Computed example of a mutant assay.
Amino acid sequence: MHTPSPAGPLTGLTVVEMAGIGPCPLAGMLLADHGADVLVIERPGGRVLDTGTGLDRGKRRTCLDLKTTDGLAEARALVEGADALIEGFRPGVMERLGLGPEVFQASHPRLVYGRLTGWGQTGPLAQAAGHDINYVAVTGVLSAATRAGVAPSIPATLIGDMGGGAMFLAFGLMAALWEAQRSGRGQVVDAAMVDGVGLLSSLLHSLRAAGRWSDKPEQNFFLHSSPFYDCFECADGSFVSIGALEPQFYAELLQRLGLDDVDPAAQHDRSQWPALRERVASRLREKTRDEWSAQLEGSNVCFAPVLTLAEAPLHPHALARGSFTQTESGHWQPAAAPRFSRSR
């Protein structure tokens, strides 16, 4: 095993980030976490939404008034001295500011220009307002987060903003930078959340094409109808998650819950799901979440307690891996990911 070096794998990469909220700052932090020098250009008046310092880790900041000749000139100079720029405004905003990609075509042809939006730079919705829930909805993915008779529900900001947006912007930026090393030419990266979320759903489309995905929750074990793949309430009102998909894991679940009269070979007999689901739910309500964790965690049942954001950093697995770090003020925040064997 190599000893990590003091420098991250992106050391030497310089990025200008136009200050914004949510996904673009996360993409910038991903780059900074791994050694990139990320400079955030803030405009006078502060941030649109105060999200604390959780997305500022490892970055430098400067405040420039882009409505002034000097401020705009300084911003252009900073971009011309960087390998890449990332921004998350609606299409046309950077052009109106005088910082669109065409400004740098002659002076900085190697510049990679990363643009992150919900709907993308083109298309009939390009100028429409929207948020994470809208982008996930139009891709069809929101419909895969429901149960019979209940409205779809998803975790806030994770799928559209961060998964389909920030992660694909960071990947697209690195892909374009790699290509620029060979061609000597930069390009615009159009990272649309609707495109990213759509690609994230590739497995669902594959299952559907193979006849293994039903849009009807009562016929789909992923959609909260089965006795072996869902979250269940415990005696203390907390929840645990069960994901015993494979036959051997399902058999162990039945054994550990004392349901010895249930035939594990009938796992996918949907006619038996409602009654068996109630039996599993009833059994799990007999003990608290922590009691079930002591009994099932680490087994082949595919079990995990449903933790709050406050509890997650203190879980033994998270502590052992250093999955969270503490700020000087004592607040927990997720640590850099992924890990590298040699680089920091």
Rank of each mutant, 00 (worst) to 15 (best):
A19E: 01
G211C: 07
V16R: 02
P247S: 01
E291L: 04
V197S: 00
D37P: 07
L78I: 05
K216C: 11
R256S: 04
A73Y: 11
G165S: 12
A129G: 15
E17H: 06
L207P: 02
D132I: 03
V197I: 12
T51Y: 10
C24F: 02
E102F: 03
S271P: 06
L253H: 04
E286L: 03
S183W: 08
A84N: 04
T327P: 12
L72E: 09
T62R: 15
A244P: 12
E95L: 06
A310R: 07
H205K: 01
A19Q: 02
L10P: 00
C234D: 04
V138M: 14
L284K: 04
V240Q: 06
V150C: 11
A84F: 05
S238Q: 15
F104M: 13
C302K: 08
S107C: 10
E252T: 14
Q121G: 13
T11A: 15
A209N: 08
T14Y: 03
A180I: 02
L203A: 15
S238T: 13
P124S: 14
L30W: 09
A19C: 08
L200W: 07
A144D: 09
V112E: 02
R277M: 05
L169H: 05
L78R: 10
E74F: 11
L177N: 01
P264S: 05
G52M: 09
R61K: 10
A176N: 02
A266I: 08
D70Q: 12
T69D: 15
P338H: 04
S341P: 08
S282T: 15
A36V: 14
A170P: 00
R339M: 14
S214N: 03
A145G: 04
T69A: 15
A244M: 09
W332V: 06
G46A: 10
N300D: 15
L97I: 10
D269C: 07
A244F: 09
L72Y: 05
L85S: 00
P313R: 03
P155E: 13
P6H: 04
A126H: 02
Y229R: 01
G81E: 00
T139I: 08
F303I: 01
T62W: 13
M18L: 13
R283C: 13
A82T: 03
S107R: 09
E311M: 12
G130Q: 08
Q295C: 12
T139R: 01
L257S: 03
W213N: 10
G88T: 03
G88W: 00
R270Q: 11
L173H: 02
R285D: 05
P109K: 02
C234M: 06
L296T: 09
L30Y: 11
W292N: 01
V48D: 13
Q333W: 03
